[in-house]
Structures are given as C-alpha cells and as structure tokens.
Amino acid sequence: MGINIKLDNCYIYSCGVVATKEEALHLSDYLDIVHDSLFADGKYYVDGEKQMLIEAISFALTKAQLSKDDLDFILGGDLSNQITTSTEIATLFETSYLGLFSACATSVEAINIASIILEGKKAKNILVYTSSNYGVSERQFRYPTTYGIQKKQTCTTTVNGAVAIILSSKKTKIKVSAVTFGRAIDSLSLNVNDMGSLMAIAAFDTLKKHLKASETNCKDYDLILTGDLSKVGISVLKQMLKEEGEDVDNISDAGELIYKDNEKKLAGGSGPACLPLVAFSLIINKMESSEYKKVLLIATGSLHSKVSVAQQHNIPVIAHLLELIKEEEK
C-alpha cells in the first residue's frame, strides 16, 4: 500500500552540519562550524537558530558546487510554532518550498519525500534542511529557560544545531536505496516526561514493516540508528525487538550518543536536528570509508502540543525510516 518504496535514482550529494560546543564533544571532527553558544552571534534564541541554518545551507551548497538557482525544490521543517524559522529561510530562495511538520521526525520525512520526487525524475537537485534550538523549543513546549523546575530523569534536552542536505540524481558514493513511511500511532499516554518510551512504539512499528517488506532482519544491517529515543526509549525498543527474536547489537540511538556522559542533559538529546547531526557527520564519514555499508536511519517524533496535552488528549507518535547503502566504485 505504498509504505515501503525501493529507489534507484536518489543520492546524497552533500551535507552542511553546524552545532555548538556541547554537541561537538563527540562529533567535533565532522562538523562544519562549531559555535560557542546557542545564540551564535545573535541577540535572541531564534536569531541563533536562523544563523546556524543559513550557515549549514551555505556549506551544503558550496560542497556540492551548486548555486541557489540550481535547486528544484526545498523542503524544511523545525519545532518553532507554524515552522516560521524554516519558512523565513525559504524566502531567501526562489525555489518551490514545501514546509513540513513532523516534530523530531522531520528530517527523514523530508528526505523520503525528496527521494520520491527524484525517483519520479521530476527534479535533479533538492535541498532538505532542519534545525533545532533549546531556547525556542523549551519555551513553546515546556517552561521558560530560567524557570526553576526539577525535570525528571527521563526527560530529554533539545540539541542546538542545523543540518542541510542536498539530494540529487547524480551518482555519488552514498545512495538512498529504500524509504518506509510511518503511520501516526496513538500512544495511549499523556506522559510528556518520558517521550522516548512512547516513540519506541512508532519506531518498532515502522522497523517491523520495513523488515517485512524488504525480507531482511536487523542483523543484515551494519547500523540501525534511531532518532530521539533517549537512554530509556532505546532500551525499551531493544527489549521489544528481542521479544520478537531479533538480534539487537547493532541498534543505537542518536540522542544517547550525542550527549553521552553529560549529566546535565538528563536522558539524552532530542529535536529535529538530533538524528541528522549524528547521521550526516559521523555516520556518513564511516560509510565513505566503508566501515559501514548498509545503514538504517529511523527518525521518531511525538506530535503533541502543550495545549493538547493540557486538554487530556493522548500523544500521537510517528517514525519514518530510510535506508542508505554505500555504492561500490565501478
């Protein structure tokens, strides 16, 4: 029914990755710019987010040796209200813009949609971008940043960073070989303090559907990287897969990796930029050096709002998946 689609015409052309010192602890060699703080050079949080996004996009365009006018589509999304940050950046281009909201699953959703457009040969170069900022999202979804609240140990912290990826039909070393779109699932819970466990339901559902459609098992991949599941969510997902008889040694979580050993960040990182920051810096590098040949990226998101939770509506969750393979030299 169109959930899992195999592709033959979509390649990762270049990526621009920008973050701050705290995220760079485990990713430093692979980031394009590392800022001292989440404000970059701006006055307010939103200025920092926009600056990092513009820098990431410039790097992606420069590395691909393309100009703004060579792009056929731009797709972007983030966590700000009505995705105004992404849209304001899109006004700097004269290309058609598709704004997406899927909370922390935005990055993979955007790449998947871009891949289908490229597969249908309706475009040659597509730009996909996403960003996240602690100050912007904390204010909208939780409390003011200086408010004295004792967060629970299972809460996650939004990462500060921006990632821009250019996909094209021109052959490169990294190919997007299949995409699986997830479905929105009612998690039957209102627990905003432990979103990792809730999103594990969606990750499990989408992963099982992909494995069934592609007739593979978890151990056929070199790495399965999930998005924002945090320390708690990744152990829940691994346990759920073990119950189904899968081998779970190659499953990791980007949120846990990015803030490893940082007690202040509680259970780990989250945000639309969390998975792309790890995947399109560290993992792409490992794929280019052939350490990993076949990788799955699963981005998970929880699609609630502050108002809907206060109105006692359950939190919907979603997970989108994409498969990357290393093309052999011909």
């Binding site: 140990q153 432990d194 466990s197 708690v232 152990s235 829940v236 346990q239 759920m240």
Partner: peptide, 11 residues
C-alpha cells in the same frame, strides 16, 4: 507487554 517492558526499563 509493552507497558511491562517500559516499567522494567525505566531507571
């Protein structure tokens, strides 16, 4: 079963 797993894995 999922709820049991969450309860066990929560720190």
């Amino acid at each position: 079963k999922y709820q049991e797993i969450v309860k066990k894995e929560t720190p």
